[in-house]
Design a protein around this nucleic acid. Structure first.
Lengths: 207, 207
DNA sequence: TTGCATTTTGCCCCTTTGTGCAGTATAATA
DNA sequence: TATTATACTGCACAAAGGGGCAAAATGCAA
């Protein structure tokens, strides 16, 4: 599908690109002619028509300077990175990711934390050291449709966010720490102000 | 120096920006008029003159569509991200970061792994679980001038890279695991093919 | 050689577009 | 109150710019 351009056509295309880049608007037919020493507007027009045929540009008839570059020079490579909000405090009753709660954002490689609504949370305390999650670590979590027994989850109770193992048991939820010095926390599923904010999908620690 | 724009001026400026973005060329005076329901070209002209006076645009007299946006809309924010090479295999005798050894790159936020020559390494084995570094984790390490007792380091011995605690002891180096089921590894500093590749500065784990 | 695409000249026409001039209205400011 | 910046209407004009037609030179492939 990609028809080869003649030298002339390529040169003209390059010139148009440069002009758009530099000035912010495309050259007129006569300006192109001037640049290349083409005395007739029709000389330029045949070239532009060829470029249009070959899909390099598109033009609006009778409109001055209406050359559009179809193939952009450097397609801004789609970022391999997502911005992830860091949840700071947790205001009771407000959605976790309300602007009020967000402490900043972080860029993370999509290969490490895939998914859209991932957020980050800084760990306070040692209750999960057994799972390799230490005080001060940054955990990445993502809201889930269903949580499974044994998942490490971010649970919000009032204005407190806590990271624990998830163990549902008839109506209640047991939040189990990974540290034998801590005891489990059992919460009624219907406790006002309680909800599961996400499943932990990653941990980062500065050493 | 930054003169405030009126609502009207701001709207026109936004429209011009949008047009340039979408079509690749600025609108003509009459097109602007059409967009805003201004029947007279002079209505638009006064606005453009104001914008030019306030330094938002610049125009070439008598040239059609010659509006240049002086202040570019979104200065491409300097990236908050570094590319970090992931060291795969370790070829004995070759520099760790030789292309041959590199398995790909990863984008990481500078806030998490500062510094230039940081590299990443995937952990094999459980010898450092006590330090919260598990099999399959990604560790980030940075070459250091001096290593200190107790640092977690990446040591290369021949074609083997290993992550351990660093304990220098009279001429030798003791590489201490963080797992009581493993024993320490004592290496003569001068062993051929042995060197310290870096100090671990971060750990990432997919959960 | 013939045929075809490309590139170019030259001329003319007409639309698009920027500009000039004369005025009106409004709000903010001195 | 007078002044100034802003935001228009309406009209006319000339330059800029796009398009059409006829014709020719060049290079390449069949």
């Amino acid at each position: 599908m990609k028809k080869a351009l003649t030298e002339r056509q390529q040169a003209v295309l390059d010139f148009i690109r440069r002009q758009v880049q530099q000035k912010g608007y495309p050259p007129s037919i006569r300006e192109i002619g001037l640049e290349f020493g083409i005395r007739s507007t029709n000389g330029v027009r045949t070239i532009l028509e060829a470029l249009e045929r070959k899909g390099e540009i598109s033009r609006a008839p009778r409109l001055s300077r209406s050359i559009e570059l179809v193939k952009q020079p450097a397609a801004p490579v789609r970022p391999t990175v997502t911005r992830i909000p860091i949840v700071g405090r947790v205001a009771a009753g407000m959605p976790l990711l309300a602007e009020h709660n967000v402490d900043g954002t972080l860029s993370m490689d999509r290969d490490l934390v895939s998914g859209e609504s991932t957020f980050a949370l800084r760990i306070k305390g040692d209750s999960m050291v057994g799972a390799g999650i230490f005080d001060g670590d940054l955990v990445f979590a993502r809201p889930q449709g269903d949580y499974r027994r044994g998942d490490i989850v971010v649970a919000v109770i009032g204005d407190e966010a806590t990271v624990k193992y998830y163990h549902p048991e008839n109506g209640n939820i047991r939040l189990e720490p990974a540290n034998r010095f801590f005891g489990p926390l059992v919460v009624d599923r219907a406790t006002p102000g309680f909800y599961l904010a996400g499943k932990v999908v990653g941990v980062f620690r500065k050493v």
